[in-house]
Design a protein around this nucleic acid. Structure first.
Length: 598
DNA sequence: TTATGGACTTAGGAGAACTGCT
DNA sequence: AGCAGTTCTCCTAAGTCCATAA
């Protein structure tokens, strides 16, 4: 259905309404084959088939990390209390460690062990024989030096900004099929020490410097190829128009490939984003059938089918991720639905007055903890007991299931359906329902925005999008409360003044005192509004303490729902989406009318 | 059937930039 | 102007899912 989508070429430039209309009609038409003769000829040339992503691609290549600058001779390194001059290679790696000294992970055993092992590889044989114990290394002068440097840099940011702007203009854009597009990450990742998330077995390892010889360039044959820095060569220049990346290289920690790709505002990303939400809307149409199906499958004679059905129920109900298998010892120990282990669930026949409660406790993506107590249907509960029978805690809960089996099944239920579509679907439908429930047209703008944030928050909670509470949270809450108290006093004063003005006006009965009453009334009103705004702010912030709204907003919520909501309730779109977000969602902003339904 | 590679989306944190207040 | 607090942008790790090889 979504193969060879229509061009969004109008998205990168400023769309005019007429072309948007054409685009919308075009899309609609593409979805309804019966109207195929309607496909405007102008799309013909830009609609690709067979996985072709572009016809023309030209760019300037990546920006490399600045070369290493040796430390000034007065910044010293000490081993066992004695000054020691390091070779340039060893010194560079030492500075990576020194820059992280304030961070907790430099105290972790695994980090130190990995770092020291990789550092020794960069040492001269003489250094290697001398430096045998990391605990005897003193990086503090280096650390101080870098702190001073970053202070100094703050003072001269003007020139730096200018240089950054120049680099952006020169390397930050490419031409893809007649359009100048912003590149997302045109800078090559600088060398440093790898910091995994959570309990990562490779934390502290040396991430090596990427050279032109490591780089594969992708561009069209008939474009001006990017030039490698003088005296160097690219690893390869290829012309693969079945992929969207411009530059790639292999990273040395996991051996995986890294890419330079386009910004979310680009046609190629926007189009994909739109397809994602269209897929979720297709799921909406058949989700009832699928739910009925998996409930039926809970009773299956076959264990693998029961497991599949229970896993799918979790993915649907709890918005869990699919849960691919991971290579042990290569990454932090995290799981998703299909990779859940027995130790991650506790079954409670009865808990807090509810029957059949499942307690989940596991680390998910980015080692974020998922903790939830969920009442489930009796049949699910019984199945879980069955799956857990005679197993060790570290055994797989779904031993007859993996993501590939699950996705194959989903594919049969609906063309193009995979596990992650459920997350998108449930997130978007939740936003829409919550907005319908929470928004009142009588509310003023800040109250409506609070409702929006609450709807957004419901989704973030569903998807378990957490953040570390800001370090200054308690204090800033207190400050806000102080402000509110002050405002309340101010309001009381204003009310008193209004009262006396009224009394005054009753006695005097002249124009001047009437006017005074009016202006006092206005003042009271204004202060009331300000107070209300502050209180709303406080509520919003308190509720948001540990919740990250950004991820769902950016990746799970069909932007057309938000755009429609803004139009319906007269909220300026700027209150919901900042500049970057508006660029990313340009297609939705121009497409969705106030009656859009997900 | 499983393992591996490849391409792409999704994720939270760090630091820069901005805003509003005194 | 300077500061504190908030918001935005950048960074890159960590997922998903598909294709292909063994």
């Amino acid at each position: 259905q979504f193969k060879g989508v229509l061009s969004f070429d109008q998205m990168s430039t400023k769309m005019n309404n007429a072309s948007v209309l054409v685009a919308c009609v075009g899309m609609l038409v593409y979805i309804l084959p019966s109207l195929c003769f309607f496909i405007p000829f102008r799309w013909e040339e830009e609609r690709y088939t067979d996985g072709v992503k572009w016809k023309f691609l030209e760019h300037k290549g990546p920006v490399f990390a600045p070369p290493y600058e040796p430390l000034p001779s007065n910044v010293k390194f000490y081993y066992d209390g004695k000054h020691m001059k390091l070779s340039p290679g060893a010194e560079e790696v030492a500075t990576f460690f020194a820059k992280m000294l304030d961070h907790e992970y430099t105290t972790k055993d695994v980090f130190r062990k990995n770092f020291f092992k990789d550092w020794r590889k960069e040492m001269t044989s003489e250094e290697k024989s001398k430096l045998t114990d990391l605990n005897k290394c003193d990086f503090s002068e280096m650390s101080e030096y870098f702190k001073a440097q970053s202070e100094a840099r703050k003072a001269m940011t003007k020139e730096e900004k200018l240089e950054n702007e120049r680099l952006l203009q020169e390397y930050g854009f490419c031409i893809m099929d007649n359009h100048k597009e912003r590149i997302a990450n045109f800078r090559i990742e600088p060398p440093g020490l790898f910091r995994g998330r959570g309990d990562h077995p490779k934390m502290g390892m040396l991430k090596r410097r990427i050279r032109p010889e490591d780089i594969i360039i992708n561009c069209s044959k008939d474009s001006k190829y990017p030039k490698p820095p003088p005296g160097t060569k690219w690893k390869e220049v290829r012309h693969d128009n079945k992929v969207t990346w411009l530059v790639s290289w292999t990273e040395n920690i996991q051996g995986s490939i890294k890419y330079i790709m386009l910004n979310p505002s680009s046609r190629i990303k926007g189009e994909k984003d739109w397809q994602k939400y269209e897929m979720a809307r297709r799921l909406k149409k058949c989700v009832d059938r699928i739910r009925a199906q998996y409930r039926e499958d809970w009773k299956s004679k076959e264990m693998r089918i029961r497991q599949r059905a229970v896993a799918l129920y979790f993915i649907d109900k709890l918005a869990l991720r699919a849960g691919n298998e991971k290579e042990e010892g290569e990454t932090a120990d995290t799981v998703g639905c299909c990779s859940l282990r027995v130790e991650h669930l506790t079954l409670h026949q009865e808990m807090d007055g509810q029957e059949y409660v499942v307690e989940f406790d596991f680390l998910g993506k980015d080692s974020i903890r998922y903790y939830n107590k969920v009442p489930v249907e009796k049949r699910v509960f019984k199945n879980l007991q069955l799956f857990m029978e005679d197993k060790e805690p570290e055994d797989d809960l779904f031993d007859r299931l993996n993501t590939s089996i699950l996705n194959k099944h989903l594919q049969e239920l609906m063309d193009g359906l995979t596990a992650k579509v459920f997350r998108t679907y449930n997130a978007s439908i939740t936003l829409q329902q919550q907005l319908n429930e929470l928004t009142s047209s009588e509310d003023n703008v800040p109250a409506k925005i609070l409702s929006y944030n609450r709807a957004n928050r419901a989704v973030a909670i569903l998807c378990n999008h957490q953040r570390a509470p800001p370090k200054t949270f308690e204090k800033s809450m207190q400050n806000l409360q102080t402000k509110i108290d002050a405002k309340k006093e101010q309001l009381a004063d204003a009310k008193r003044e209004l009262k006396s003005a009224k009394a005054d006006a009753k006695v005097r009965r002249d124009e001047k005192s009437k006017k005074a009453v009016e202006s006092k009334k206005k003042a009271v009103q204004r202060i009331e509004e300000q107070l209300m705004k502050l209180e709303v702010q406080a509520t919003d912030r308190e509720e948001n303490k540990q919740i990250a709204l950004g991820t769902s907003k950016l990746n799970y919520l069909d932007p057309r729902i938000s755009v429609a909501w803004c139009k319906k309730f007269g909220i300026p779109i700027e209150k919901i989406y900042n500049k970057t977000q508006r660029e990313k969602f340009a297609w939705a902003i121009d497409m969705a009318e106030k009656d859009y339904e997900f």
